[in-house]
Amino acid sequence: MTKQVTAWLQAAPMAVVLLAFLVAPIIMIVIVSFWGATEYSIYPDFQFDNYAFLFGSPVTYTVFFNTFYYAGITWALTLVIGFTVAYFLAFEVRSLKWQIGLFLLCTIPFWTSNIIRMISWIPFLGRNGLTNSTLISWGIIDEPLEWLLFSDFSVILAFVHLYTLFMVVPIFNSMMRIDRSLIEAARDGGASGWQTLRHVIIPLCKPGIMIGTIFVTTLVMGDFITVRFMSGSQRANVGRLISNDISLLQYPSASATAVVLLVAVLIVIGLLLRLVDIRKEL
C-alpha cells in the first residue's frame, strides 16, 4: 500500500463524519431555506419568501443588533478577564506544578454541564437571591434590584461565566511559548512593566487572543439557550429566532435565518482573520 492510500484510509472516517453531519446538513439548510411551509408541513419549492419576510421584518434587525451587542460585550469582558488570568498563571506563578494545577482548576468547569452552570445563578440573582439580600442587609439598597435576573445583565454574566475559559486557554498557551529572555531583554533595556506588557507580551499573544476571540464570538453569536434561559425569554438573539421557528415547525423560515446567521458568523471570522494573519503568526 502506498503512503498516500494509507493516509486516505486513515482520514476517511473523519471525512465521512464531517461530510455527513456537517457539510450535508449545511447544504440541506440552504436548500430548505428556499422551500415553502404550511402550518404542519414543509414542501419543496424555489422561492425567496423566507428571505423576503426575514429582511422585511424590523424584528430581524433588532435581533441581529442584539446578537452583535452580546458578542461584543462578552468578547471585551472575556478578553480582559481571560488575559489577566492567563498572565497571572504564565508570568506570576513560578512553579510548573502550580501552573498546571491552577490551570486545570480553571478548565474543569468546561467538562461540566452548561445548563447546570446557568441554573446555578438563580439563587444568586433572583429577587430574593443572595445578591439582593446581601445588598439590602448592608443597607446599600432598600428595594431588591429587578435587573439582576432575566435581563441583559444576567445573559452577559452567564456568557462570561461559560466562555472566559475559551480565552484563558489559547492566551495561556501563547504566553507559555514566549521566550523569557525577551522579557528580560526588555527589562534590561529599561522598559517598565507596562511597556513590556504593551510592546512585548501583547503582540506575542496575538495568535492566542485571536483564537479565543473566534471561539467566544462564534459561541455567543450561535447561542440560543443562554439567552432564552437567563433572560427568562424576555430577550432575543438570532439563535432564539431560529429556535422559535423550529418549535412552530416553520423549518424553511428557520433555515433562512440560519443561513443569514452563518453568513454573519463567517463575515466576522473573515474580518478577524484579516486583522491578524493567523497562519503567519502560528
Partner: peptide, 9 residues
C-alpha cells in the same frame, strides 16, 4: 459553526 445549525440540518 453554530451548534443549532448542525442540529437543524
Amino acid at each position: 459553526i453554530p451548534s443549532i445549525l448542525v442540529s437543524l440540518g
